[in-house]
């Protein structure tokens, strides 16, 4: 078993919290894991990614080879497209559809949609809206993770437990709203995949 995931977004959007949840669940299950992150200059509003690798055997490279990623999980639609060379033929792309515009030459929405529509395997979700409706705009990440969860070879309960554990220090309300976001994302993906 192996899952290679490219996590994508813009510096400051918090893609690493998605990684920490999957990572927590994976370590509990005794899986091997490698997670390459971007620190430093790019974190200041630039494009950022994390190569996240899980397997039931020791993993050699910290970086995923091109054409081998099983999933792209992105919190921003244009950033999702930046990593297509890494996505395998049958790979799945899960992305938020809400753009983060901090550059003047950001593509037109219609062109962005057209590119996303070309992809055979995808879940495009308005995670911001779902998170907001559930009362925590900051938890869009968990909606995205929920939407990706059907494609991660792991019981959903393991991810739920990880959310509970990782957010435990922030109180019961925070845990519950993040769990609700996770479940809402999953439900959307099950209906729209």
């Amino acid at each position: 078993m192996k899952i290679d995931i490219i996590l994508a977004g813009v510096g400051g959007q918090g893609i690493l919290s998605i990684a920490s949840i999957i990572g927590y669940a994976a370590v509990k299950k005794g899986l091997y894991l490698k997670q390459a992150e971007v620190h430093g200059m790019s974190q200041r509003g630039g494009d950022v990614q994390s190569n996240f690798r899980l397997a039931d055997y020791p993993i050699a490279s910290d970086l995923i080879p091109k054409g081998k990623a099983d999933l792209i999980i992105s919190v921003e639609p244009m950033e999702a497209l930046r990593y297509l060379p890494w996505l395998s033929k049958n790979g799945m792309l899960i992305t938020n559809d809400q753009p983060f515009i901090n550059i003047s030459n950001y593509p037109e929405e219609s062109k962005l949609k057209a590119e996303l529509n070309k992809l055979p395997h995808k879940v495009v979700i308005n995670a911001d809206q779902i998170a907001k409706d559930l009362g925590s705009a900051r938890s869009a990440n968990m909606v995205i993770l929920g939407a990706a969860s059907p494609f991660i070879d792991m019981e959903f309960s393991a991810l739920e437990n990880a959310v509970s554990e990782v957010f435990a220090g922030k109180g019961e309300d925070v845990v519950n709203v993040n769990l609700a976001c996770l479940r809402a994302g999953r439900e959307f993906a099950e209906k729209n995949k």
Partner: peptide, 20 residues
């Protein structure tokens, strides 16, 4: 032989780091 996924669409713009 190295396989690659699909190319990066042309509309994808560079996003350099910036002052907050």
């Amino acid at each position: 032989e190295q396989v690659e996924g699909s190319p990066i669409p042309e509309i994808v713009a560079p996003r350099p780091p910036a002052l907050c």
